[in-house]
Amino acid sequence: MKERHSTYHVQHASIGIEAEVNRLKTQAQMGWEKEFRNLQWYGLQDGMKVLEVACGPGFMTEKLVENLPNSQITAIDIDQGLLDRAKGRLEHVPAKRVQFVQASAYQMDLPENEFDFAIARLLFLHLHDPLQAAQEIMRVLKPGGKLVIIDIDDGIFGAIEPEMEILPLILKKIAESQAANGGNRHIGRSLPRLLASAGYQHIDMDAVIQHSDFQGIDGFKQQFDSERFAGFHQRGTISSIEFEQLKRSYETFSTDESACAMMVFLMACGTKPKSKVLTEG
């Protein structure tokens, strides 16, 4: 997802675009089983018209297509390069089942009252104006339709063993830098209020846990690879000393045969009112 009013640009990934896309693939696959279970609990059903906002290279889109064989999936992203990757991945799927649209989360150019269910995964932490995006998603939902936001909060990001002691300080500095650029790595705690401010009703929230004892350690090694933080070092967000400490901590973590890791992802759901009266932003 590349957005003019967003803090994420795949082209800026320190590890390179191909490695970043592979990381996104692993991340999506690690969380899918539990996230899909919760999506169903929130009301996602086969046969619904589903909107995926900020689909990126299409790894979650692929899972939705596989698990909702009678649904129509519309996947949007502002980054044409990522959309092209998603299209290539799903070129075998008939157009009547999946549609890709280059569009902004703030202005999707899609019909009003069109979708039964919308999903935005790891989008809102990057947005400069999350309220506008939530309201735009509401516009295209049918009355009674639902939005589920899947996102993070660095305050409860998870745990690593052996502990990377420098990591909390680095995450704090990155969160401050992202906030200065318009993002919010603590968005998770604000999701219920965000949905309420946008006019959603029947708001609920839950958490899903990824743990290396279930998903394996390799995916977590990708997430915490010190090279992912090289760009923050180059831009001065973290010092050379801190970056060297991180590299040493990561080396210890990645080579420890007994290492384990856990990450927390938050899911918040809101329902579009069945009346026509919506909250103004």
Rank of each mutant, 00 (worst) to 15 (best):
E114C: 13
F115L: 07
F115D: 03
D116C: 08
D116P: 05
F117L: 04
R121G: 10
H126L: 03
H126G: 00
L127S: 00
L127A: 05
H128A: 02
P130L: 10
P130R: 05
Q135I: 14
Q135P: 05
Q135N: 06
E136C: 09
I137M: 10
I137P: 08
M138P: 02
M138A: 13
V140N: 09
K142V: 05
K142T: 04
P143C: 07
V148P: 00
I150D: 04
I150N: 05
D151K: 00
D153E: 05
G155L: 12
A159H: 00
M164K: 04
E165C: 01
I166T: 06
P168E: 13
P168M: 10
L169M: 08
L171C: 11
L171N: 07
I174T: 07
I174H: 05
A175G: 14
A175M: 08
E176Q: 13
A179Q: 11
G182C: 04
G182R: 02
G183I: 03
H186P: 08
I187G: 09
G188Q: 05
G188S: 06
G188Y: 00
R189L: 12
S190F: 15
P192I: 07
P192G: 12
R193S: 09
L194A: 01
S197G: 11
S197Y: 06
S197M: 11
G199W: 01
Y200W: 13
Y200Q: 05
Q201A: 07
Q201R: 12
I203G: 13
M205Y: 12
M205I: 13
M205N: 06
M205T: 08
V208R: 15
I209H: 09
I209E: 02
H211T: 07
D213P: 04
D213K: 15
F214Q: 07
Q215H: 12
Q215E: 14
G216D: 11
I217G: 12
I217Y: 12
G219L: 15
G219E: 08
G219D: 11
Q223Y: 05
Q223D: 08
F224Q: 09
D225A: 11
D225K: 10
S226Y: 15
R228M: 07
R228Q: 08
F229I: 01
A230E: 10
F232G: 02
H233M: 11
R235D: 08
G236W: 12
T237W: 06
S239D: 11
